[in-house]
């Protein structure tokens, strides 16, 4: 398999993820963007491990432990949204949520939201 092609594909996935994080307006799209970066990292580990470092066990252990822990964290956040938030708050996350928002009250004055 062409190693360079894997690297370019990976870079594309990573950039798609970053673009999605900045562009998405709801939490589900944002989680999908997170997945893109995670998958990009996994492909990186596997391709480097298989093509450069003779199927290193360390990389496989890192992938398993890293993915389990990060997905567990994301699962907790999703579970909290479904179980604890009221309908209005949920609607905000589904329809008008941005990870990076800039609001005047975060710079000066009072926070009366």
């Amino acid at each position: 398999m062409n190693f360079q092609l894997i690297i370019y594909f990976n870079l594309l996935l990573f950039l798609l993820g970053i673009f999605g994080i900045f562009y998405s307006r709801n939490i589900i799209t944002m989680f999908v963007s997170y997945q893109f970066i995670i998958i990009s990292a996994i492909i990186n580990f596997l391709s480097f491990s298989n093509l450069l470092y003779m199927h290193s066990l360390w990389a496989e252990v890192f992938i398993i432990s890293g993915v389990i822990s990060i997905y567990f964290l994301m699962f907790c956040i999703v579970y909290y949204i479904y179980s604890k938030l009221n309908l209005l708050d949920k609607k905000v996350f589904y329809e008008n949520y941005r990870l990076f928002r800039i609001i005047t009250s975060d710079w000066w004055g009072e926070d009366n939201r």
Binding site: Y34, N44, F48, G66
Partner: peptide, 11 residues
């Protein structure tokens, strides 16, 4: 997630 990606590059 970014750290995970960064570690993959270091590796």
């Amino acid at each position: 997630i970014l750290l995970f990606f960064g570690f993959s590059l270091f590796y």
